[in-house]
């Protein structure tokens, strides 16, 4: 369960950000934005090394005291960033990976909607529902 999920365009502006409702939304926005430093660095490192280019999952970007930030980048340079509570030790790496895959699939569906203009903010209800299902539910 994530506390914040974001989709970032290849020009680095946010296409979609959703965070757990009770938290200070700005804090997560900053967190996602600053994580792009690490994403950029990883992407450029990937480009130089002859690593399997299809490896989209970037793994843990950086830990803060209370949260862990994970990243994923598609071949079209769209980035997904997920923030997870540090205390949630139950969440293992392969679960995170599968969450990203789900995100990627939903994002592809959004792109296939003929009424969606790529580059616009994502307003798809289906995408929203999928993201909500992966977020921490706060009553």
């Amino acid at each position: 369960m994530a506390v914040c999920i974001a989709v970032i365009a290849k020009e680095n502006y946010p296409l979609y950000i959703r965070s757990a409702p009770t938290e200070n939304e700005l804090k997560f926005h900053y967190m996602v934005h600053t994580s792009l430093d690490v994403v950029d660095e990883k992407i450029s490192a990937m480009g130089k090394a002859l690593v399997d280019q299809r490896e989209l999952y970037l793994g843990l970007l950086y830990p803060t005291e209370d949260y862990k930030v994970y990243g994923y980048v598609t071949n079209s340079k769209v980035k997904f960033v997920m923030v997870v509570d540090s205390s949630n030790t139950a969440l293992r790496d392969n679960e995170i990976r599968s969450m990203f895959r789900k995100l990627h699939n939903s994002y592809t569906d959004v792109m296939c909607n003929p009424f969606y203009n790529p580059g616009d903010r994502i307003q798809s209800r289906a995408f929203d529902n999928m993201v909500m299902s992966m977020m921490v539910q706060v009553c």
Binding site: E11, Y13, P14, L26, H29, Y30, H33
Partner: peptide, 10 residues
């Protein structure tokens, strides 16, 4: 910085 990257909330 924030303007050029389009992070309007921030």
């Amino acid at each position: 910085d924030y303007r050029s990257e389009g992070w309007w909330t921030l």
